[in-house]
Amino acid sequence: MSEKETTAARPLIDDEAFMSVADLKAYVAEVESAKASQSYVAMQAADQAKKDLIERLSRPIELTPEKISAFMHRVKLAAERGEREMLIGRFPSELCTDHGRAINNTEEGWPETLIGLPLQVHQIWKDKLQPLGYGLKAMIIEWPEGFPGDVGMFLTWK
């Protein structure tokens, strides 16, 4: 056999190295399925973490002198940096009876929609900090899929 005949009879690349279109589609489907499965598990974990957070924030906390002192120290540090407000709480809009609608629309009665710890924070501000000249504002700070997500509560001063 001549060299020319041997080269013609031998494929340049082994046929087994090629993947058929059907095999390629099956491979892509497996990869996409694995990604979706991981995404689903991650979404379930995030959903459970949010439920746990809502459960925890649904209950008021005990305020100790140490916690109050640490909080006021954070306020002083923020003021020293020239800031005029400080995020004091972030919570899911599910801790509002209207899921944050009144906060988003800056309605005057928005505090009446709060429950749990956010309501306690508002009451502490009203009883202790407002008489000292501090302000309190709330706004939706996250919009997952276009819906109100987390609410941010800010202590303000001038």
Rank of each mutant, 00 (worst) to 15 (best):
A102W: 15
P92R: 12
F91K: 14
L114N: 06
T7V: 10
D15N: 08
K50P: 06
N105M: 07
P60A: 04
G149H: 06
F147N: 05
P111C: 10
I141P: 00
W110D: 04
Y134L: 07
T97D: 01
Y134G: 05
R90P: 00
N105F: 11
K67L: 14
K76Q: 03
L114M: 07
L53T: 08
P60Q: 05
C96W: 15
L114K: 13
T7R: 08
S2C: 13
M19D: 03
G100P: 10
G133V: 09
L155W: 01
E16A: 03
Q130L: 07
S2T: 15
E66W: 02
M19Q: 10
Y40Q: 03
R101D: 02
P148K: 12
F147L: 04
I61N: 05
V31I: 15
A78G: 02
H122N: 11
I61T: 11
E112F: 12
A78R: 08
K137H: 11
I54G: 01
D127W: 06
T6H: 13
R10M: 14
P148D: 08
Y134T: 11
G149K: 02
L132A: 06
A70L: 10
S33R: 09
F147I: 09
K128L: 15
D47W: 04
Q44V: 04
M153S: 14
A36L: 06
A49G: 00
A42P: 01
A9N: 14
G149P: 06
A78T: 08
L53H: 04
F91I: 11
I141V: 15
G149S: 01
P144Q: 01
E107Y: 15
